[in-house]
Design a protein around this nucleic acid. Structure first.
Length: 442
RNA sequence: GCGGGGAUGGCCCAGUGGUACGGCGGCAGCCUGCUAAGCUGUUUCUCUAUGAGAGCGAGGGUUCGAAUCCCUCUCCCCGCGCCA
């Protein structure tokens, strides 16, 4: 959540940020209305409580002198009634106010392009040499900076669904039978390739100063609520029946929540953590999109980068984690572009977000495989994670980025590195030490 | 799942109904010809702030007054049971 003091001090910054996000400023008005009420009420309550405390003390003295305190007791009881009344009122006001406060989004960084739909995201750069089917050439050129490198191909590459099924690497129908749509069985060398991707990513991040953490795959409501915007996220989460537990949708959440309510030493920062876990997503509202194959699924494995740092360093770290994810894609020889996500598409937590979109030649599109966000102090404030300084404890900053989401990268490998005749998939050189093979065929 | 013990400020710890003791650490200052020893103050959150309120794992209850008594829950430790 945002800083209430900052909101009171500089309301205009929040009104402007909300406008950039094309959001209604009504909640801001509502907040100030409720906050004023709350503060007025608080003053009244505190005054009454002071009176009560004084009287209580008087009773204590009276009893010690063997006097009769019943008259004062009566007065305190009356005071208590007033206080109870005001406090229940105050409880309601506070919960209304805090509910509104949680919907007020983070302040957007000045470098974020201001616009509504994702068609206006700013392309930062393109890297690699994409295989582009003739019919997609125009689309590709419009989606990349001028003179971006490519190889034109005469035939559209085979879709990952057909290819992986043909090579006996996935079984979607049977997964549908036992679990439903958007599940999959991975088979044979594709399993090993997935494990290779994960092992490679873990080594990759270890070498770059990350601690590797496998977190709980479930979180309780309170942790989930403080690490993300649960009200808008709820539909995406699986809930465990009869328990206060949710399956995680990303290890960002258990990793962020790990340091909830803690105070870190300045020397501990920055903290680089790589989370490794499966991710469970209901993908509610995704009907009709990517219904086939393993591109958009209810369960996938992911290695996530997470940074806890001082506020003055968070913008450098956004470039660092984006850089790590880019280097990972480059090392796999995947062609990609980096996109600066526009204001209207950011989540309430985000001050800025980059996506890495890999070129998928069979789909003829760039598709998101990495999301790198700076949440500044927004997430850390509701998690109450601070660090000690000479001038008191301050809220830290948090950032996160995908390193690798395995299913999407497996699709990318299938589409980008398939043999022209569909007889197999070439494994990128850096993965070979992890797979033990350099080619997958039937 | 059963039985026993526990949770107090950044950390340690005292406190069995009268408004949280003491220590350590941090910060500021004093003293001292050095970074020793010592002394003083301070240390969390909230508010319209020379003042006041809250805060003893969480939430309720009893009471004029609860860290303390009662109820429910969470987590940790020890033992038993179960278990890959």
């Amino acid at each position: 959540m945002i800083d209430v003091h900052l909101l009171r001090d500089k309301p205009n910054a929040f009104y402007e940020s909300a406008k950039k996000r094309f959001m209604d400023t009504g909640p801001l008005d509502r907040f100030f209305e409720l906050d004023e009420k709350w503060r007025k009420n608080l003053k009244e309550i505190n005054d009454l409580k002071r009176e009560k405390n004084e009287m209580s003390l008087k009773i204590s003295e009276t009893v010690k002198k063997k006097g009769d305190p019943s008259e004062i007791k009566k007065n305190v009881r009356e005071l208590n009634e007033k206080i109870d009344h005001l406090e229940s009122e105050q409880k309601q006001i506070a919960s209304d106010r805090d509910a509104v406060l949680k919907t007020i989004p983070n302040i957007i960084h000045e470098s974020v392009p201001v616009c509504k739909g994702d068609e206006n995201n700013a392309v930062v750069r393109y890297v690699g040499k994409a295989r582009v089917f003739s019919e997609d050439l125009e689309y590709f050129r419009n989606s990349t900076p001028t003179n971006s490198k490519l190889v034109e191909v005469e035939k559209r590459p085979i879709s990952h669904v057909d290819l992986l099924e043909k090579l006996n690497l996935i079984d979607i129908p049977r997964a549908g039978k036992v679990a439903g749509a958007r599940f999959y069985y991975l088979k044979n060398r594709l399993v090993k390739t997935e494990m290779a991707l994960m092992n490679y990513a873990v080594d990759f991040l270890s070498e770059r100063g990350f601690n590797i953490v496998e977190p709980p795959y479930m979180l309780n409501y309170s942790s989930m609520d403080s690490v993300t915007d649960l009200e808008t996220f709820k539909d995406a989460l699986y809930k465990i029946e009869g328990e206060d537990l949710y399956l995680i949708a990303t290890s960002e959440h258990p990793i962020g929540a790990m340091l909830k309510d803690e105070i870190l030493e300045e020397d501990d920062l920055p903290l680089r953590i790589a989370g490794i876990s499966p991710c469970f997503r209901r993908e509610a509202g995704a009907h009709g999109k990517d219904t086939k194959g393993i591109f958009r699924v209810h369960q996938f494995n992911k290695i996530e980068q997470f940074i806890f740092c001082k506020p003055e360093h968070s913008w450098e770290f956004l470039e660092e984690i984006l850089g790590n994810a880019e280097e990972f894609c480059r090392s796999l020889a995947l062609p990609y572009r980096v996109v600066n996500i526009c204001s209207g598409e950011l989540s309430v937590l985000n001050a800025k977000k980059y996506d890495i979109e890999v070129w998928f030649p069979a789909q003829g599109r760039f598709r998101e495989v990495v999301s790198a966000s700076n949440n500044t102090d927004y997430q850390a404030r509701s998690l109450n994670i601070r660090y000690r300084t000479k001038d008191g404890n301050k809220i830290i900053n948090t950032l996160n980025s995908t390193e690798v989401a395995t299913t999407r990268i497996l699709v990318a490998l299938a589409e980008n590195f398939q043999e022209p005749d569909g007889s197999g998939i070439r494994i990128p050189d850096v993965l070979v030490p992890y797979t033990g093979f350099d080619f997958i065929s039937y």
